[in-house]
């Protein structure tokens, strides 16, 4: 977050200056961030240009192996895989980011309220969360999607629902551990209402672990999106979502047309990997022991 200059005067004698050893993390950090930027770039590009029409069957021969014209080959219907993959980035990255943002916002707000007020409010919120979390994430997502139906908006809603409890718990724990801190008490004393203490003073000091967790959650979300797509219950089977694409290429794997499933798989692997690398670097950065 904010980089702070060090207190030279007092640090010089007491202890070595506590400078965050950023350099150590820079490689994973750069790799993760770079990869994500690449995906984002591809997603944006796909709105303006793709090599072929990603939705047009018969752009090339059926099951063409990678060639100069179709660098990643084509599928059974002869659609260009590279074009589909590029458009698919929009789905996977977009749904994931939207879901993470919603889960982070709602989870943080509810968690902060639960953590700061405690008592009956806390109990009510936590019981609710426990009910959600009693189901495994993917199973829960499948159940809801089956119930409310397919579609991008529904998938986003479901994913944020699945991710939200973790943010809530994290925010609650962070705020709780700081509720008795003197600066929170001091904030009350200058005339802040309790809600202002919670959101203006405690929450900004608790955001580090929450932000670090977004990456982990994002990686997990990508996997769920792809899993839903693979099972054919999230989006329409025609949407060029990566999980969908893998499912479409399943038959080919046995008969030698490996590329149809392989390239979407690599795309998923790359995106989850990028999020994990970023998350790893971020959680090191926000390590409580390094916070002043």
């Amino acid at each position: 977050m904010t980089s702070r200059p060090i207190d030279i005067e007092s640090a010089a004698v007491v202890a070595p200056p506590r400078r965050r050893p950023r350099r150590r993390h820079s490689l994973t950090m750069k790799l993760g961030a770079g990869l994500l930027l690449f995906y984002a770039g591809v997603a944006v590009l796909s709105f303006f240009w793709t090599p072929h029409d990603p939705f047009m069957p018969g752009a090339g021969p059926s099951y063409s192996a990678p060639t100069w014209e179709f660098p990643l080959g084509t599928d059974r219907l002869g659609t260009d895989l590279l074009s589909r993959l590029m458009v698919g980035t929009r789905y996977d990255l977009g749904i994931c980011l939207a879901a993470v943002a919603i889960a982070l916002t709602i989870g943080t707000i509810l968690g902060t309220i639960a953590g700061y007020y405690g008592g009956a409010i806390d109990t009510a919120i936590m019981r609710m969360v426990e009910i959600f979390q009693a189901f495994p994430g993917l199973l829960f997502a499948m159940l809801i999607v089956q119930a409310v139906g397919a579609g991008v908006v529904n998938v986003i809603a479901v994913l944020s629902f699945v991710g939200m409890p973790d943010y809530l718990r994290l925010a609650r724990a962070e705020v709780r551990s700081r509720r008795e801190w003197q600066f929170a008490e001091a904030a009350r004393l200058v005339g802040n209402r309790p809600i202002a203490v919670a959101f203006k003073h405690l929450l900004p000091n608790s955001m580090g672990p929450l932000l670090a967790f977004t990456s982990v959650n994002a990686a997990f979300s990508v996997l769920i999106i792809a899993s839903l797509g693979f099972l054919g219950i999230g989006l329409s089977p025609d949407d060029p979502e990566w999980g969908n694409m893998i499912a479409r290429g399943q038959d080919g794997v046995m008969t030698g047309e490996w590329w149809v499933s392989m390239f979407p798989g690599i795309a998923i692997l790359g995106m989850t990997g990028a999020f994990y690398m970023l998350g790893d670097a971020l959680s090191d950065l926000f390590d409580p022991r390094r916070r002043t």
Partner: peptide, 15 residues
């Protein structure tokens, strides 16, 4: 009614 706290490290919001 105002108050000054014991630990000036902890009573000022670090951010």
């Amino acid at each position: 009614l105002q108050m000054v706290f014991q630990d000036p490290n902890a009573s000022l919001n670090p951010r």
